[in-house]
């Protein structure tokens, strides 16, 4: 499989920056070792066939901020909800198992969707299939919230080319 050179370069750059960040010793020796290490890693990754647009979207725009923000707010709210349920005496939950349709085209988007569901407390994606995702929800409200599709809409679809 052939993939654009820009993926390789972007991966190399990211990794090298990572090295510099981890290292903290910017001596010639260690920096050159860093270059060697980066190249070696990229070579292995190349052999493994794991460099593609899915993982290293060179084009991934920073406009995803909107999504991150949305997600963070969801997570915090949901956390509070779960904590409330934890401390609520008596019967505090009404677990549901629901199946939602997945409309996203690309794998990446579907994965982000599933992981976002999991990240949001109160709901866990149990099984991700081609056109649907099975979700276990802690409460009816949580299930309803997902059914409403707010989350699905928030997933940024537009940054994925091809």
């Amino acid at each position: 499989m052939k993939y654009p050179v820009k993926h390789v370069i972007s991966l190399s750059v990211v990794l090298f920056l990572l090295w510099l960040g981890l290292s903290g010793h910017w001596t010639p020796l260690l920096v050159s070792l860093g270059i060697v290490s980066t190249l070696l890693t990229v070579y292995i990754a190349h052999r493994m066939d794991v460099i593609d647009h899915e993982t290293y979207p060179a084009h991934m725009r920073l406009l995803m901020f909107r999504f991150w923000f949305f997600l963070a707010r969801e997570i915090i709210a949901a956390n509070i909800d779960v904590i409330r349920r934890v401390f609520k005496p008596g019967k505090n939950i009404s677990p549901q198992m629901i199946k939602l349709p997945v409309t996203m085209e690309t794998c990446l988007a579907r994965v982000i969707y599933a992981n976002s569901i999991t990240l949001t407390p109160g709901t866990v994606s149990v099984n991700l299939e081609k056109d649907s995702v099975t979700v276990h929800a802690l409460s009816i409200e949580g299930a309803e919230e997902l059914r409403s599709g707010r989350m699905a809409r928030a997933i940024p679809q537009d940054y994925v080319e091809e």
Binding site: N79, V82, I83, V86, T120, V124, L138
Partner: peptide, 29 residues
């Protein structure tokens, strides 16, 4: 606080799937 709440959660909830919520999700935040 969140951590402890999660810890209590995995004891309060009745089955594996619901405990998963308590543990996994609080974990992240």
């Amino acid at each position: 606080l969140l951590g402890i709440a999660g810890g209590i959660g995995i004891h309060r909830f009745p089955d594996f799937y619901s405990r998963l919520h308590a543990a996994g999700t609080t974990d992240t935040l």
